[in-house]
Design a protein around this nucleic acid. Sequence first.
DNA 1: CTCCTGGTTAGACGACTGTCGAAGCACGCC
DNA 2: GGCGTGCTTCGACAGTCGTCTAACCAGGAG
Lengths: 127, 127
Amino acid sequence: MDTPATAPDTCRTADLDASPLPDEEARELSRLLKAVADPVRLQLVALIAAHEDAEACVCDLTCAFDLSAPTISHHLKVLREAGVLVSERRGTWVHYRLCTDALGEVARALAAVGTPRVPLLVSAASR
Amino acid sequence: MDTPATAPDTCRTADLDASPLPDEEARELSRLLKAVADPVRLQLVALIAAHEDAEACVCDLTCAFDLSAPTISHHLKVLREAGVLVSERRGTWVHYRLCTDALGEVARALAAVGTPRVPLLVSAASR
DNA sequence: CTCCTGGTTAGACGACTGTCGAAGCACGCC
DNA sequence: GGCGTGCTTCGACAGTCGTCTAACCAGGAG
């Protein structure tokens, strides 16, 4: 079962090498998008953003959902590891704060994928 | 040891009713984000966007990845059902085109989640 | 110190997702 | 008509994800 000829004449497979979205970049953006692509996590972010100084205590967040505390903690961890939130322990309570414009960065990168302009700084005169 | 300032004994779960991101809206945005939160799908969109008229034939897309045709077809379907792409059969071949600025809409909605709607107006009165 | 409460970690489990090969449609061509 | 090719659908499978309970760690109050 060697390769079925990899479609030799019908299409040249090398097209992706000149891809507008390099493999590595696609994986990274996907990782960040997956982190926010969850209704609970979106509401968590919105809830924190709505607080003063874009900061909220975990206990305030936990009781805003019909979910167990470990579940909320898990979601917060995902957002933290994606760089969307940062946590800080202040005495007994742990506060979560929005990382400044991390979401904006992701949104901008996503919008850039759909625009047929030069993505970053490669391929200056390709079109 | 009452909580910081808000929760009296337990905390009343009604806080989410005044949420900055309603349940329905969170689910919908999450649905769209999930659709694009995949490296292959991001590259598909970028590849189509890089074509002239933001349109490409499936055969061009399929051979750009090391994936089977059914897999690419599946990803295209996901993007189509999310409203990011539209398909059109032209004779033997099926062409996929970028839905104008559907990605921009999603990106804008995502950025809005992290932006406090009224920065310093309502928050002072609510506490 | 001993409790009690806030928050995280560990482990488990069902649901969903990405991938494949095989089969099925929809065309154009002989 | 019958064929061949482009694309999609169908089932199946492994892997990931969201949720839970139980157990654990960190501080403050008696």
